[in-house]
């Protein structure tokens, strides 16, 4: 069992292959972890399809399992893992984050309050919102 951390909740999955060369997940787990679905045109999420590279090491095997780490890097997004290769982070890349900010649309997020109740920034839509950070340290 390994743990995959994305912008959503941590996901615990059994990899579809050894993790020493990549992060192979079954077709269904790819979708659970990333929202991308394997289709004839590539890996797709909503209207966006990322074609698979035609050359080099394949990202998909005969069973439809995908090396998600290689796919993530193919999209120019960071992948990091611990030394044991049991915890993986599929993060958002700088290009995606910068492009989001350049639209001036406030990036949405969901975070817990002290009691663990989740709140989304977009629930405040219709008001002027001062989003302010602080820390104890």
């Amino acid at each position: 069992m390994i743990t995959i951390l994305t912008d959503q909740q941590p996901l615990h999955v059994t990899p579809a292959g050894p993790t020493d060369t990549g992060l192979w997940l079954t077709r269904d787990d790819v979708t659970r972890a990333t929202g991308f679905e394997l289709k004839p045109e590539g890996l797709c999420k909503g209207d966006i399809c990322v074609p698979l590279p035609r050359h080099g090491t394949p990202l998909v095997d005969g069973s439809g399992a995908v090396d998600v780490a290689a796919f993530w890097r193919h999209m120019g997004q960071p992948v990091v893992h611990d030394e044991a290769r049991t915890t993986w982070v599929l993060a958002s890349g700088a290009r995606e984050r910068a492009a989001a900010l350049e639209t001036f649309e406030a990036p949405d997020f969901r975070l817990p309050d002290l009691d663990g109740r989740m709140h989304g920034l977009s629930e405040q839509r219709g008001k002027k919102v001062l989003l302010a950070t602080w820390a104890s340290w």
Binding site: L101, F104, A132, T133
Partner: peptide
């Protein structure tokens, strides 16, 4: 520090002003 990553923040306190339509 998800918000720091999303908004590219460096320190505290930092603030962002967001209008009624969700625009910064």
């Amino acid at each position: 520090h998800h918000v720091s990553a999303l908004y590219n923040m460096l320190n505290v306190p930092e603030a962002v002003w967001i209008d009624e339509t969700g625009r910064i």
